[in-house]
Amino acid sequence: MLGMIKKDLYLMLNNRRLFYIVLVLYLGMSILGGQDYTLFIPFMLLMMFLTSFSYDDFNSWHGYGAVLPQGRENYVKGKYVTVIVLSVVSCFFSLLLSFLIGSIKHEGNLMDSLSILAGITGAMLLLISILFPIIFKFGYEKGRIALFIVSFGISGIVIFLGTFFQTRIPESLILFLEKYGIYLAALITIAMLYVSYRISRKIYLNKEL
């Protein structure tokens, strides 16, 4: 599996120029403007990581990858492990930058940044858990269309539920969610990632490459 993780990291590393440009742009906008754009770094890295699927498809890697020892199994496992580690690491990196920018500007709240980043990372991982099986089944091109549908779909559902239940949520439930919501969200994310991994694995192990 380590080999497959390395492959994806090398792909990202060999594309690092784009990352540097966007990073400088975000830093500049965050220091000079009113918003903290560094909080979008994890999402940007996720997008960069997703291009590894595109390279794999474009260069017909899958046939070659499948003939490596445990190639199919390690490919799926590698993608999930890389994206989870990348999400967590980029979240901390983003938090560090956010803290530094806050210090420069003498403003900002580390706890606020942390909760925003936790939300972004959780949303990213939920998105991945839906998106990856689609990519493994249909390839990256179709997966990209699914990415937009899923992103807008989830946002729409959240807004709809928020508006619809705003006045009907019992206070006890709100209190419960305030206290345990973060743990519940973490549990749901982990469960969804696991189910997603099992589905992707099953799809890829039986796929004609």
């Binding site: 380590l2 080999g3 390395k6 792909l11 890697w61 046939g63 070659y64 020892p69 390690n74």
Partner: peptide, 23 residues
């Protein structure tokens, strides 16, 4: 394999490092 290999933005050094952990 005909037309199936590592992604084209990798180099032989990368391939060496990857396959060390595969074989």
């Amino acid at each position: 394999l005909d037309n199936s290999f590592f992604p084209e933005i990798l180099n032989p050094g990368n391939i060496d490092s990857i396959l060390k952990d595969v074989y």
